[in-house]
Design a protein around this nucleic acid. Sequence first.
RNA 1: GGACCCGUGGCCUAGACAGGAUAUGGCACCGGCUUUCUAAGCCGGCGAUCCCGGGUUCGAAUCCCGGCGGGUCCGCCA
Length: 572
Amino acid sequence: MTADPWGAVLDEAEKLRKEAEAAAGVAHFPVPLETPPEGWGDLAFATFPYAKQLRKGPDQVAKDLVALMPKGMLIATSEAVGGYVNMRLDTVAFSRLVLDSGLAAGGSYGSLPPKKVRVLLEHTSVNPTGPIHIGRARNPIIGDALARIMRMAGYEVSTEYLVNDVGRQMVLLYWGVKNIDPKDVPPPEKEKEDFRLVKYYQKANELLEGNEELERKIGEMILRFESGDIALTREIRSVAERVLRGILESLDRIDVHIDSFYWESDLIMSGSARQVVNRLRDKFLDEGGALFLDLAPYGIKGENTRWFLTRKDGTTLYPTRDIAYHLTKFDRCDIAINVLGEDQKLGQQQLKVGLQLIGAPGVPETLFYSFVALPEGRMSTRSGRVVSLDDLADELVERAAEEVRKRRPELPPERVKEIADIVGLGALRYNIVRLQPEKKIVFKWEEALNFEGNSAPFLQYAHARTCGILSKAGGRGTPDPSALTHPSELRLVKTLGQFPHLISVAAESRRPHFLASYAYEAASHFNIFYRDCQVLQAEEPLRSTRLALVEISRTVLGNALHCIGLRAPAEM
RNA sequence: GGACCCGUGGCCUAGACAGGAUAUGGCACCGGCUUUCUAAGCCGGCGAUCCCGGGUUCGAAUCCCGGCGGGUCCGCCA
């Protein structure tokens, strides 16, 4: 038994290949193991790379290697086909391994052993000036999924939100809240602090247009604030807190919970930003009091490669505070990961240079995502051209409720609401987490509201089906792996056996969308099994064996859904 | 001017980092499947110059070079 059946298969395949290579007197080639097309076996590798060295045709090499390849515990046979070695699993041995592993692990199947590696994962960190919109919502959705996946892979993960309560945008918001008459701002779209306060921010931006006196006033406040005026900092921070509360409510609704918050203003008040300046001062150039470094020698290119640490008045700039912030991270973790919009790429490069110059113990890993735009262009809080996370969530839940009512007219309204929440909010997350982060998304309502095919409800429905069978099943006997012979059940066994391996791959590569693809495949294979293989009416020992497969399917689908941030309903 | 990312059927998308067998799915469209564990399902059909042009290679969606198109960035903002 093992925590990772597919990993065991891969290890054995490598071992058998090496043994065949050694027997043939061939140097090892790291030809990747691949999955051959359906019907050609379970694992394969190409022999073209060997052909040249051996001065033989690839097909002959494949035949030679096959002839010399021993039989394994899990891999029963291999055959040479047109320059490939195709290996086939011993289906009974592999089914036994998957059943044993899955049943022994129970609900924790897929969880890998603890690694004793602390990960500090910074995500979201949106400016608290207004409601979070779907352009930025990609950040918590990807970040939280990565946190969940890495936890399942055995890492000690803590998530953190850097609250940018410093800077012009915050001062402007504060000024607006303090000075604009409530009668002069339009009513908020929702009764939430973030929606209420953003109106003052937008109005303040509007008033600032061409208003030099206000411009000057704001400038003064920024200076006071950033020079460490504690009273002002507290006031601004309290406004930021009010907006943040609204943002966190939105995040809570989609099951994103952040472990800790770091307030940027603390870096000023504690003097840690100042210390960064002192430690870097002699490496930087001074221009009228402003410290800067030319980053051109560090491989950074562009119109202007000068990177400023301080203003000429001596106040620190954001990158300086970010260095200070990251220094605190390495006291608290072994791996720091930042999930950021692609607009932060240069900034992160600069940050890494800064951290190296100051002798930091490490640099953060970065996971960048492209923005979600509307068909009419980029979203902007300042202009109000946004679709808020809350709007999208409301719409999806409402649509999901219609669907549930249509399909399950007998359900009481409370139950409809519960399922609609699970489905609608799941759709929100799935539509983002399933895509490669680096691809930009143009948000379209008709696509977001689709509940069929490759969609959240598809995955959740498969899970609900497993629960439906299990709730009707009663007990079961001991499973017998040799009872499993139908191609659809063998395919399901293989997919279920790959789950722990997928957790590992998605965690190590920091690619949450791998797990979304896997979850879809697992759901799809379960649905095919469901069509082809009757469970409850089957004869023993097939019934008990299939029932065990359904149990493991429920765990795999439930855990896979959990990892990408979707809830797994028992009925829909 | 420069840097980074993206470009796959009408639309969306996997595969690209580790080059390999007839390029993965979904939406839409057409046609089928429910006396049997929930049809948000399943099966079949239609549909692709993998942006373009060179190069490397036995072999390129994948690697390299050059274009084109889109996104992002190059502030004593954050």
